[in-house]
Design a binder for these strands. Structure first.
Lengths: 221, 221
DNA sequence: TACAATTTTTAGATTGGTCTAAAAATATTT
DNA sequence: AAATATTTTTAGACCAATCTAAAAATTGTA
């Protein structure tokens, strides 16, 4: 397949993310927001991406990825998440440090490298934040997961992912001892501010704010 | 330190390589050749690199790297060679396959990543082609080495590096069983075409052409 | 339905990196 | 030292990606 510029690739990723989130065509403005650029620049780029057959684009109607664009975007996500696993598992970075590096590494062009890396890492299905890693054909492994905020007192499960990937949130989780795979159960729910008291593992009890509980993915037991 | 574009970085590498080879300022034309671009483009870029304090440049007088430019160039070489070690040792690529990937990976911006990678690889001093890997301060480990073509009958040594990095040459070496570290001795030298008959290891005898013998680095016993 | 607000596109300019063709400087030869 | 050859620089143009400001289209609302 042809090669595209890093900028073009980043636009594709942004469109993929927005379409996935809202399940409808991405708007020029939304893309501009995601890319931290102006709407005018986005329009320019959309015209070019459409010419290259990467997106379906009609003026004023928003955009969706074509099959080709979608393959490319999932390929980028695959690379990003595999490199994140590498950085954590092999180079011992922590999960709040890997974003910038993976952002660069995902643009390395070499199909063979991706497959060898995947092999080397033991073909992981999820990245260090719990996000699924698409396989070489672009298929994601899905998981039945809910926000912690959707759990009721008495219910229990394992932490399988985060919704917010910011270093601040990830460092907070480290501080209070929440890692991917941690077991927890809801002890009590406070209607006042929608915070919850949870039991972490055997003996660690914490009160988590509404914001935190809306950013943790749980797989129920 | 500021960041520079991949193009700027590639110019710095080219200038470093040329200055190292000839031990005098690099000419516009030589750089154009190295970069496969036009002399006019080089002149443009030189003006910009000089403005950024990366090179000493006087019109018509050729260029040399400044301290800053030199630090940057050795940093790139360090990254390139460390990634090559990674690709070979960890991902099991062969020494003729790694060039393109390392060429991309060397532009990843993250000092922390380089140091972790170095650690992870066991702080290697030489890359898979026998080229020295500069340390974090830019210091190279030097080695007393000569071309195979400089050895006389009866002399022996170990293959410690290659001068030609082309896949064709490296694959040829694989084919006839010459690896880095291989021991060899000169059995006979033919004045006719300056080829040499060498004994490889215990029992492998080969005649090597002048061209081959001028592209193998040997450390004498 | 018409007017206002918002979103999107167009127009025109800028920057980095590239090119070709021509001019200027340097190096080589006689 | 003059003439010639070579190298290097300048001039002017192009493309990708970006910007701001203004125009056009769409959406929301009185």
């Amino acid at each position: 397949m042809e090669n595209f510029s890093q900028t073009e690739e980043n636009y594709l990723k942004a469109i993929f993310k927005l379409s996935e989130r809202d399940d409808k065509p991405a708007s020029t403005n939304a893309i501009a927001g995601e890319m931290s650029t102006s709407a005018a620049s986005v329009t320019d780029m959309l015209r070019r991406l459409a010419e290259k057959g990467l997106i379906h684009y009609e003026k004023y109607r928003g955009v969706a990825l074509t099959e080709k664009g979608s393959k490319l975007a999932t390929g980028l996500i695959r690379k990003h998440r595999l490199w994140e696993v590498f950085l954590l598992e092999k180079l011992r970075f922590s999960w709040d440090e890997v974003q910038d590096m993976a952002e660069q590494l995902e643009h390395i062009q070499s199909p063979e490298l991706v497959e060898r890396l995947d092999d080397y890492l033991g073909r992981p299905k999820f990245d260090p934040h719990g996000d699924p890693i698409p396989d070489a054909d672009g298929n994601f492994t899905f998981r039945k997961q809910v926000f912690l905020s959707a759990l009721n007192p008495g219910e229990a499960g394992a932490v399988v992912g985060v919704n917010d990937h910011s270093p601040a949130f990830l460092q907070y989780l480290d501080r209070i001892g929440i890692k991917l795979g941690a077991h927890l159960s809801i002890a009590e729910r406070f209607d006042y501010d929608e915070s919850v008291r949870v039991l972490l593992g055997e003996a660690n009890e914490q009160v988590l704010s509404k914001k935190v509980s809306q950013n943790l993915f749980i797989q129920k037991f």
